[in-house]
C-alpha cells in the first residue's frame, strides 16, 4: 500500500497554488491528507502532481464578524473543535466535530479538505448545508462565492473547476438563543455516520417555531435539506407530536444503499435521528438542555 509516484509542490501563496493548478495536468491538492493519503496508498488516486497546501499562508483562521463566521480552508478540525468563538456562535459545528474521526485525524484534517472530499456522510458538509454556508473559491480570475446548495455536483464531486480551490467557508450565524442538535448513528465512535441529522430551531416570543433547519447526511450523495420538514415546523408550537410529524417527512426520502445499510434502514434512521435532533434542539432553545 504505497502511493504511486507523483511530483510534489509546496506553494507558499494561494496565487502560486492556483497558478500550479492551472499549469499542471492531473494535479491534486493535498490539505490535511486524512482521506487523500489512504486513496494514494491504495492506488485508487493517481495524481501526477500533488500540490501541498500546508505551507500556503493565510488559509487558516477563524473569525466571527457581523454575524458571519468565517473559517479558512486549511483550519484544522481540531482548531475548530477547540475554538471558544465557534462554541459560542455556532455550537452545532462544535457538536458535530465530536463525531469526526479521532483525535489524530482531527489534528491534521481540515475543513476545506472535508468540504472538497465531499463524503456523503461527512459531518462538516452536513453542518455547512444546515447553516446555508457559502464557499469561497479562488481561481485564476480571482475569487467567487458558491452557495453550499450548489457546491456538490454529484457523488464526491465539488463544483470546482480544475484550476480552482476552496479558500474559506462563511457561515451566517443564527440568533444567539437558537436551539441546535447534531446527531448521528455510526457503528463505532469516530466512524463515518450511516445517517446524521442536524437540526436548528428558533422560537418566537410566543414560543412558536420561527425558523427551522433540518438536514440529513449519509442518505444521498450530498447532504439533504428536508424542506418539507422545515415547512411543517415553522409557525407551529413545538410538541413531540409535531416533531414526529416533521420526522415522518424523512420516511419518503430517497436513500442510498451500501454493504453496511440498505435504503430502508437509512430511511428509518433518518426519521428517528431527525425526531431526536429536533427534540434536543427544542430542549436547548428553551434552556432545558445544555
Amino acid at each position: 500500500m504505497k502511493p504511486a509516484g507523483f511530483a510534489y509542490h509546496d506553494p507558499q501563496t494561494v496565487a502560486e497554488a492556483v497558478a500550479l493548478l492551472g499549469r499542471l495536468e492531473n494535479a491534486r491538492l493535498l490539505a490535511g491528507g486524512q482521506s487523500l493519503m489512504p486513496m494514494l496508498a491504495m492506488r485508487v488516486a493517481f495524481p501526477d502532481h500533488l500540490i501541498d497546501l500546508n505551507r500556503v499562508e493565510g488559509l487558516d483562521g477563524i473569525t466571527v464578524e457581523q454575524g458571519v463566521l468565517r473559517i479558512g480552508a486549511m483550519t484544522r478540525q481540531r482548531s475548530i473543535e477547540r475554538s471558544a468563538a465557534i462554541r459560542e456562535a455556532c455550537p452545532l459545528m462544535t457538536e458535530a466535530l465530536t463525531h469526526v474521526g479521532h483525535l489524530q485525524t482531527r489534528n491534521r484534517g481540515t475543513i476545506g479538505g472535508s468540504l472538497c472530499h465531499l463524503d456523503p456522510s461527512a459531518e462538516l458538509v452536513t453542518v455547512a448545508a444546515a447553516l446555508d454556508a457559502t464557499i469561497e473559491v479562488a481561481g485564476p480570475e480571482g475569487q467567487r462565492d458558491v452557495a453550499i446548495a450548489d457546491f456538490p455536483l454529484g457523488f464526491m464531486t465539488p463544483a470546482l473547476a480544475p484550476e480552482e480551490m476552496v479558500v474559506a467557508i462563511r457561515i451566517p450565524l443564527w440568533p444567539r438563543e437558537h436551539g441546535y442538535s447534531f446527531m448521528e448513528f455510526a457503528r463505532r465512535h469516530g466512524d463515518y455516520a450511516i445517517v446524521s441529522a442536524a437540526a436548528l430551531l428558533v422560537l418566537d416570543s410566543a414560543g412558536r417555531i420561527a425558523r427551522a433547519s433540518v438536514t440529513l447526511g449519509g442518505v444521498g450523495a450530498a447532504p439533504l435539506r428536508v424542506t418539507t420538514a422545515e415547512t411543517a415546523l415553522v409557525g407551529e408550537a413545538p410538541t413531540p407530536a409535531l416533531f414526529r410529524a416533521a420526522a415522518a417527512c424523512c420516511e419518503g426520502i430517497e436513500a442510498m444503499e451500501d454493504p453496511q445499510a440498505p435504503a430502508w434502514y437509512r430511511q428509518r434512521l433518518a426519521a428517528v435521528l431527525t425526531r431526536r435532533a429536533l427534540e434536543r434542539a427544542w430542549a436547548r432553545a428553551t434552556g432545558e438542555a445544555a
Binding site: R188, H189, G190, D191, Y192, P259, Q260
Partner: peptide
Amino acid sequence: ADYLLVTATE
C-alpha cells in the same frame, strides 16, 4: 474502516 474491530469505546 469497513471491517470493524472493537475499540475502547465499544
